[in-house]
Design a protein around this nucleic acid. Structure first.
Length: 206
DNA sequence: CGTTTTTGACCTGCGC
DNA sequence: GCGCAGGTCAAAAACG
C-alpha cells in the first residue's frame, strides 16, 4: 500500500530558514510514501527537490512527515513497509547537515557505490525517537545534498524550536509547526500530507 | 564528565 | 551458495 502524497506537484516552494546558508525552493513531484527514496539508486525523480538557481533564500529540509509505525522498531528495516515512512529530497546546499530543528547524532558513515561521496547516517538524539536520516552529496552534482528521512519523530523539536518547519499544522501533529512566516503555498502541503498521515495513522498506534 | 564523532568490523538482504 | 553492497554496532577519541 502506498499513500500518494502528490506534494505540490510542479510547484516551487520557497521558505525562509534562518539557520541555513543555502539557496532554495522546494519542488515536489508526486510521491509514494512506500517508494520514496532509496538514496542508493540516486534516482532523484523520486526525491523532493529543494533548490533552484533562481532562488536565493535559505531553505529548510523537510523532516519526516508521514507517520511512523506502531512498532517503530529501532532499525525500521525490519518493520513492514506499511509502518515505516521515508522521505527523500535533494537540497542545494553548501553544508551537508541541514538543521531541521531536531538534534541528530551521527552513527555511521559509508562509502556507497552509487556515489563517489560517502553517505552519513544520523539518528535522532531524542530518547525513544528512532528516526534516522541518511545524508550524502549528489554524485552528479556535489552542490546538492541528498537527505533521506526514515520514520517520524514522536516528540517536538528540542528547545521549542518553532517557525522553521515548513509544515502546516495539519501535517505536523506530533511536532512543532511554523509559528511564523508561513509561506503562502503552505496550504499545498496540507491536504496531501494530512491525507497521507491519516491513511497511515489508521493502521498504527501513532 | 557527558555527549558526539570517527571508524573498522559485523550483519543482513539481494542478485547472480 | 557466494559475493557484494548497504546499514548498524560499538569502542575509542575528541570536544564542549
Amino acid at each position: 500500500m502506498a499513500a500518494s502524497l502528490g506534494l505540490c506537484h510542479e510547484t516551487s516552494y520557497a521558505y525562509s530558514y534562518p539557520a541555513l546558508n543555502t539557496s532554495s525552493s522546494l519542488c515536489f513531484p508526486p510521491l509514494m510514501a512506500d517508494h520514496i527514496v532509496d538514496g542508493g539508486g540516486c534516482s532523484f525523480g523520486d526525491f523532493l527537490e529543494l533548490g533552484h538557481s533562481e532562488y536565493s533564500l535559505p531553505l529548510l529540509p523537510p523532516p519526516p512527515v508521514v507517520m511512523a509505525g506502531g512498532n517503530n522498531d529501532q532499525y525500521g528495516m525490519s518493520s513492514s513497509a506499511t509502518t515505516t515512512s521515508r522521505i527523500g529530497f535533494r537540497t542545494r546546499s553548501e553544508v551537508e547537515v541541514l538543521d531541521d530543528g531536531f538534534k541528530w547524532r551521527k552513527y555511521g558513515k559509508k562509502a556507497v557505490k552509487s556515489s563517489p561521496n560517502p553517505r552519513n547516517y544520523y539518528r535522532c538524539s531524542a530518547a525513544g525517537c528512532g528516526v534516522k536520516k541518511r545524508v550524502e552529496r549528489d554524485g552528479d552534482d556535489p552542490r546538492y545534498v541528498v537527505t533521506t528521512y526514515d520514520g517520524v519523530h514522536n516528540h517536538a523539536t528540542p528547545g521549542g524550536v518553532v517557525g522553521h518547519l515548513p509544515y502546516p499544522p495539519s501535517a505536523a501533529p506530533a511536532w512543532s509547526v511554523p509559528a511564523v512566516a508561513s509561506p503562502p503555498t503552505a496550504q499545498a502541503w496540507g491536504a496531501p500530507l494530512h491525507a497521507a498521515a491519516a491513511a497511515h495513522s489508521s493502521e498504527s498506534s501513532f
